[in-house]
Design a protein around this nucleic acid. Structure first.
Length: 425
DNA sequence: TCTGGGGTCCTAGGACCC
DNA sequence: TCTGGGGTCCTAGGACCC
């Protein structure tokens, strides 16, 4: 028996999803923008071919967009997440244990005595099924460790000869796979490490993997050592089938237009508190403190800059909007200064623990706390199906802090009023 | 006009305790 | 002629991922 790791990775995911309901965009360049339509976060191969890169500012590529008739979309996470779930469902028909690593990637651990060719055929079948049923192309990398599977995945994606599935047949081929593979493209080696490595003449994954353990440990911590060992074929990173509860939850967002009034910031903070509180309740956690941060636009050198954040203790461990909002507002008022144009705000909670075993002290108003918790359980139930209930402060003020999203596609798959219509006339 | 959002882990250093 | 040492907790900062 041999244990393999498969990684299934969707090609240019957001851009591909946007194309599914738009057959007229086949073979056309498509880009998807960040929140507020600021920068390119995803792009189709055709868009890459005309010279657009991830991270490009929209206003700087206007010329390219015009000349090459690039189709531009605001991000539609509801749609992408729904596609992600559909793809996962297909994969689970073949493998019960799937690690959802990100919205467009899944790891699978596969222990089998099947031959390399048989494994490749299975992978191809999964790939074809996803392509047929969901209309999304995926690449699959297969190897004895997660890090090597990621390496193979890139070969599967970049080199047509693999037809979307690349497997590291045996470790004798390690040197061949890593010899020309850029060190900076290895999973776990980012920009900074890559720069430091290059300064010492280390540019390939193979060179990195052959460095001395002590040196790796000293310069790149235990994380870097683990990466090097994984590249040698030694398994160091396991599957994570059940995502652990979040230890921190953050909700922050830039505003479509700058805000200067406290009341408008309050409306934004209230909305962020709502999101944070919902996430807390979803994982059955409570928090003992809550933080708020505000900032001006750091890119506007001509404007007065201000950044501040504050963390406040709650009177008791909680996860209901009302308690969290009360304290968040106190925090906001502490750090709010007039005369600034605020571009972004955020709400965060750290040190979460399970809501199942809260210890109240003698002074806690247990009745009030319990009432609030039940109230928001009900609110969650209603919002899950309708999404209508908000705290009063948010009423009518949404426009002031809402994002700019002028090019959003319909929620084709999750909103009955937005499904595509076919004209039969 | 225009610059994303949400996470994780690791390390070093200071405070504090006995 | 000497000025401990080990353990724990917390925080800030820096790296990484998508």
């Amino acid at each position: 028996m041999t244990t393999w790791f498969l990684i299934i990775d969707c090609n240019t995911f957001y851009a591909s999803v946007e194309k599914v309901f738009r057959p007229d965009l086949r073979n056309k360049p498509v880009v998807v923008l960040s929140n507020n339509d600021g920068v390119v976060v995803a792009l189709s191969q055709e868009a890459k071919d005309v010279g657009i890169k991830r991270g490009d500012l929209l206003f700087k590529i206007e010329e390219l967009v015009k000349t090459h008739r690039v189709h531009v979309f605001s991000s539609n996470f509801v749609l992408y997440y729904d596609f992600s779930k559909r793809i996962e469902t297909v994969v689970r028909r073949y493998f019960y244990d799937v690690e959802k690593y990100s919205v467009d990637e899944m790891f699978i651990e596969y222990t089998t005595d099947k031959s390399v060719d048989e494994i490749r055929e299975t992978a191809k079948k999964i790939r074809d099924t996803i392509s047929d049923e969901i209309k999304i192309k995926v690449s699959i990398g297969i190897a004895p460790t997660k890090t090597l599977a990621k390496v193979m995945n890139r070969y599967a994606k970049k080199d047509k000869r693999y037809q979307g599935v690349a497997i590291l047949k045996d470790t004798n081929l390690l040197q061949k796979a890593l010899f020309t593979y850029p060190a900076g493209d290895v999973w776990g080696i980012g920009r900074q490490h890559s720069k430091n490595l290059a300064a010492q003449g280390i540019t390939t994954a193979w060179q990195f993997s052959q460095m001395n353990d002590n040196w790796l440990r000293k310069n790149f911590s235990i994380v870097g050592l683990r990466t090097a060992r994984e590249l040698r074929g030694i398994r160091c990173i396991d599957m994570e089938l059940h995502p652990p509860d979040k230890k921190n939850i953050l909700c922050s967002r830039s505003f479509g237009k700058p805000i200067s009034e406290l009341s408008d910031l309050k409306a934004a903070v209230s909305a962020f508190v709502q999101e944070v509180a919902e996430k807390l309740r979803r994982q059955k956690s409570v928090c003992k403190s809550i933080g708020v941060m505000v900032m001006t636009n750091p890119h506007r050198k001509d404007q007065k800059q201000y950044y501040n954040s504050v963390m406040l203790e709650l009177p008791y461990a909680a996860n209901d909007n009302l308690t969290l909002q009360e304290i968040a507002f106190i925090g906001l008022e502490k750090i709010f200064r007039t005369e600034h144009l605020y571009k972004k705000a955020g709400v965060f909670v750290n040190d979460l623990f399970s809501s199942e075993n809260i210890q109240y002290t003698l002074w806690d108003n247990a009745a009030k706390i319990s009432k609030r918790r039940h109230l928001f359980q009900t609110v969650d139930t209603i919002n899950t199906s309708l999404g209508l209930i908000k705290l009063g402060i948010q009423k009518g003020t949404e426009a002031k802090h809402s994002m700019r999203q002028t090019k959003k596609s319909p929620n084709y798959t999750t909103d009955i009023s937005q499904v595509p219509k076919i004209d039969m006339d």
